[in-house]
Amino acid sequence: MGIIKASKVVFEYIRRDEEGNVDSIQTAVDHVDLDVKEGDFVVILGHNGSGKSTLAKQLNALLVPSEGTLWVDGKDTKERKNVRDVRRKAGMVFQNPDNQIIASVVEEDVGFGPENLGVPTEEIWKRVGESLTSVGMLKFRRHSPNKLSGGQKQRVAIAGVMAMEPKCIVLDEPTAMLDPKGRKEVLSAVHELNRKKGITVILITHYMEEAVDGDYIYVMDEGKVVMEGLPKEIFSKVEELKRHRLDVPQATLLAYELKKAGLPLSEGILTRQELAEELERCYVNYSK
């Protein structure tokens, strides 16, 4: 079994009227199966309201499935006794950094998590140093978080999760509020954690460019997983993605348009490097 395994997970938001009778039921997650191997970098795509965030919140037991079962590192999230373990294994980072930072000094904010877990003081400071180093924020350890840029705050939030030594981090649109530089900083910090420390990453995003370097992609729509596969496979289906209110990276879109116009390009171009190489090849052949 992988680090995260979902079997026919359903989640329903039940709305009740004043007398407590069921007014409406909205199925936000509809029979989802997932299997994430330890150390993978998995991306979940889907439009607003497709059920991504509801699914994400189940990965650390903020919500538990209405039906089906979700295991995090082998523990069923529905069992109350597992909740603490599950949250320790799967840390979560949200969209707005200002909503997750609580202390007035960076290092205290990062230390909050392990302190809560009852980690001895010496060990806390060791972890704070290590996790700030791992996201490139060590030199800001004595700064006030509200003086940091968005990308820096988000990296502090990630360090806060890392200090709890999770096996897996779930990031729910961590770059939605950031400028281009902030986006790059956060993304490279996350990739680094994945590569160097083998942390499993579940990244939810609306930026297709951020999905390109993932190991595996799930696409959600109306609570269901409607597409899954390697980035190359997913992004070669331009029309299908558009039907799910999504897009493809600019390089992929351009390659798709050029192919439609008759250029002999291969399928599944994801980056501008690949496209430039392909175009050079075409150009050399054409010039002959």
């Binding site: 281009p180 530089k181 460019e209 351009l254 501008r272 430039a276 175009l279 050079e280």
Partner: peptide, 18 residues
């Protein structure tokens, strides 16, 4: 200054460089 150009602008530069 922390910004960038659109992806395609970089592609065009890359093609010129080739």
């Amino acid at each position: 200054i922390g910004l960038c150009a659109p992806e395609v602008t970089y592609l065009m530069e890359d093609l010129k460089a080739r």
